[in-house]
């Protein structure tokens, strides 16, 4: 093998590495070889964003911002365009760290710290609670779960299994009782037993059902009677494959119980959950966690940068 062969081989490797990089994400493919932002680029960007469920208004906003900025700044390299794209999208999303304690092992500002979990049917509320309980417990906190989904058949049983897996106690009164009563009991018990974190599971409800939204508001009111600061957080769970309806969900749940953060679930498939950009931007609600599987440790802190990267994958 001569000198030139070795040379070629290294070139080949280099080439392969480049290909790999290219395949890494649509974002780099999108900006690859671009010397100017043209119609084709903007249309491709639009398609990627809409296909990730970002929604038309937010997509147009991003596309316009990019084309305006490109006109002003005259980017010169792919890297700059790449950075510009990420920057513009990330800018629309609020960072959860600005508003709340994110890490499970961090000191919580109140004790007991009550987190209420809400959402429409089938988004993964109970599973998310199981995972959160596990994480708080692993971080050395004393956790209590309140089984306030007293409506759905076997919801309590499902939650009990998760509580057992996480090794945390649960307050439940079975199917059909008033959920507010369960929560009142749970909060009282948490105060008595010096619990750090109370996780309140609520029944799934469609946001356009007024009486059910009122029931949720009532749970919150009753909780406050025992603990004026509670709930310290209200997390809305959104299914990652949900489309633009998620925006309505966020609006209505916020109206009823003042949502403070989002949990975006089922991101282990190919769904992108882009609609949270619109939610974060319009309602100023940050994403706190993402769910990426059915195992107990499949809950991650939300990372804006990674999220934006995944949008383009």
């Amino acid at each position: 093998m001569g000198f030139f062969d070795a040379f070629k081989l290294s070139r080949l490797k280099e080439g392969l590495a480049k290909t790999r990089e290219n395949l890494f994400g649509k974002i780099s493919r999108l900006v690859k070889g671009r010397t100017k932002i043209d119609e084709e680029f903007l249309e491709e960007l639009e398609q990627i964003l809409i296909s990730a469920d970002v929604g038309v208004p937010t997509t147009l906003k991003i596309v316009e911002a990019i084309s305006a900025r490109a006109k002003k700044e005259r980017y010169t390299s792919e890297q700059e365009l790449d950075a510009m794209l990420r920057d513009e999208i990330q800018k629309l999303m609020r960072d959860a760290r600005e508003v709340t304690v994110v890490d499970f092992d961090a000191q919580l500002p109140k004790k007991p710290y009550v987190i209420m979990i809400v959402g429409v049917n089938g988004v993964g509320k109970t599973t998310s609670i199981g995972k959160m309980a596990h994480n708080y417990k692993s971080a050395g906190k004393k956790v209590l779960i309140a089984a306030a989904d007293t409506f759905r058949a076997a919801a309590t049983e499902q939650l009990e299994i998760w509580a057992e897996r996480a090794g945390v106690p649960i307050v439940s009164q079975g199917q059909g009782v008033d959920p507010s009563a369960v929560v009142f009991d749970a909060v009282s018990s948490a105060i008595a037993k010096d619990v750090d974190v109370v996780l309140v599971d609520t029944a799934g409800r469609l946001h356009n059902k007024t009486h059910l939204m009122e029931e949720l508001a009532k749970i919150k009111r009753v909780m406050k009677k025992k603990l004026p600061d509670a709930p310290n957080e209200v997390l809305l769970v959104l299914d990652g494959s949900t489309g633009q309806n998620a925006l309505n969900q966020a609006k209505e749940f916020t109206k009823a119980v003042d949502v403070t953060g989002l949990i975006l679930t089922k991101l282990d498939g190919t769904a992108k959950g882009g609609v949270v950009i619109a939610i974060s931007n319009e309602l100023n609600i940050p994403v706190k966690y993402i769910g990426v599987g059915e195992k107990i440790d499949d809950l991650q802190l939300f990372n804006r940068q990674k999220f934006v990267e995944a949008l383009f994958e």
Partner: peptide, 10 residues
């Protein structure tokens, strides 16, 4: 789920 987004196709 009728609320599913772009993912419906995949």
């Amino acid at each position: 789920d009728a609320m599913i987004g772009q993912e419906a196709v995949n």
